[in-house]
Computed example of a mutant assay.
Amino acid sequence: MFRLKLRDELGIIKRNGLYRFLRKKDRNILDFSSNDYLCLSKHPEVIEAVKEGLKYGLGSTGSRLTSGNINHEILEERLADFKETERALVYPTGYSTNVGVISSLCKKGDLILSDRLNHASIIDGCRLSRADVEVYEHCNIESLVDILEKKGRRYNNIFIVTDGVFSMDGDIAPLRDIKKVAEEYNGVVIVDDAHGTGVLGGGRGTLKHFNIKPSDNIIQIGTLSKAFGGLGGFVCGIEEVVEYLINTSRSFIYSTALPPPVVSGVLRSLELIEEGYLTKMLQENIRSTNRIFKRYNLIKEDNLTPIYPIILGKRTMEISEYLIKNGIFAPGIRYPSVPKGLERIRVSINVEHREEDFERLCNLLNKFGQTNNSIST
C-alpha cells in the first residue's frame, strides 16, 4: 500500500510538471549553474591545502563537543576577523546553520519578521522555532514597519531575518534601512550572507558593501560551499551568541563536525579571498555580463551580483533542455523554488567565464526564440 501511495503522489508531481531527477554534469559542458563564484573549489592551492589537511584523517569522527574539534577553531578565529566580529562558529552545512541559529535564538513569545523571498533554510528555521512568524513583502521597508507598528510592541524579542543577496533573484537586501528599523524597535537582525560573502564588499559581504559596522544586534550567517568552494556554514556575532549556540543549537551539538581536510581547504580559500584579486575579477565579469545581456535585452539594469534570473515562465524546462543539448548547463528553476509564473533559468557567472561564453548563451537563447517565435510565456 505504501509503495502504491508513493507512486500515486509521484504521478501527481509528474502531471503537474514538477518532477525532478538527478543529472550528472558533463565536465566539458559550459556551466552557468554553479555557486562556485570564485572557482575556489578546484583552485590548485586549495586542493593542496585539502591534501595537507588529510594528516588529521578523512573525517572528524564526532561532533565538535566530542572528538570532532580538530582544526575548526583556527577557521573560526579567521572568520571572526574576516567578518569583524567577536566570535564565529562553524556548522556542517549552511542549511544546518540557518536552522540551528534561528530555532535556538528565537522562542515562544518572540516575533520573527521574514522576507517573503528568504531561502528555504531560513523558512525551516523559523518553523522549528516556537516564535510567531510574520512575512513582509520582499525588500519592502514599509511592509516591515507596518507589521511592527501593528504587532511589534507585544513581543519579548523581535528578530528581522533576511538574505543578504537573494539566491534566485540576485538582488540585495536594503540592510541600511533594515538596521535602522531594528534599532528603532529594539530588534535583532539576522543576515544570511551565503551569496554575498566572497562577492560583495571586497569579499567580506553585504554589511561591508553598505559600510555597516557589525554590532551587538547583528548576526551574520554564511556558507563555505559557495564562494569558498567547500562545504559548511558559519555564524558570526558577539561572544554571547556563539557561547549560547554551542550550548543550545541542536544542529551544531548533534552533528558530526566538518571533515578536517575541508576545513584546511576552506582556510586557504579564505586567504585567497582576502587577497582581493578574485573578487575584483568577478566584478569585472559582472560588468561584462551586464553590457552583453543589455545588448540582448535580457536585463534592463546593471547587476551587482553574479546571479541573473532570466524569467521564462512555462517554457523554462524546454529551454533549459535546449541549452543542455547545445553544450550549456543552465538548469531551469521552477515551483516551489520560485513562485508559479516566475519560472526561470538562473544564470550564475564566475571568474573563469569569458565574454564569448556570455555571447554564446545569448545567441542560443536568441536562436531558440526565433525558431519558436518567443521564449516568453
Rank of each mutant, 00 (worst) to 15 (best):
C106P: 02
V199P: 10
Y91D: 03
S225M: 07
S104D: 02
F210C: 04
I160F: 05
H209W: 08
G203H: 06
G230S: 09
I141H: 02
V181W: 07
G94W: 02
S143P: 03
S96N: 14
T93Y: 05
A173L: 00
L111V: 00
L231I: 06
H209E: 09
P92F: 10
I221V: 14
H138C: 03
N157L: 05
V101F: 09
D146V: 06
D177Q: 10
F159S: 09
A120N: 10
S114N: 11
R116G: 07
L89I: 01
F159R: 09
K150R: 15
V90M: 09
D124L: 14
G196K: 01
I112F: 08
V161H: 01
V135S: 00
E183S: 11
D132F: 15
A182P: 06
P92N: 09
L117P: 00
E183C: 05
V145F: 00
A131E: 09
T223S: 12
T93M: 04
G203N: 07
I112W: 12
S129F: 14
K226N: 11
Y91F: 15
G100R: 03
V99H: 13
N211I: 09
A173D: 01
D124G: 11
S143C: 05
P174F: 01
S143G: 03
L224T: 07
D171S: 14
I172W: 00
L175E: 00
L128G: 13
A88H: 06
K180A: 11
L128I: 13
N186L: 12
N157C: 03
R154N: 08
L105E: 08
I123S: 12
V189A: 06
V189M: 07
A182E: 00
A88C: 11
H209F: 12
N118T: 03
H138R: 07
V101W: 08
V90S: 08
I112H: 08
L128Q: 15
A88N: 04
N98Q: 07
G229M: 10
G109V: 03
N156P: 03
D177I: 01
K108S: 12
I123M: 14
D124Q: 14
E137T: 08
I172A: 02
H138Q: 06
D171Q: 05
M168S: 11
I123G: 08
D163Y: 13
I122C: 08
F159E: 09
Y155N: 02
I221Y: 08
Y91M: 06
K151Q: 11
L111F: 00
N186S: 14
I218F: 00
N211V: 05
Y155P: 02
S103W: 13
R116P: 07
E134H: 15
I178P: 05
T206G: 03
L89Q: 04
I102S: 05
I147S: 11
R127L: 13
E134R: 15
I102N: 02
L207W: 13
T223M: 01
H195L: 14
G205S: 10
I190V: 15
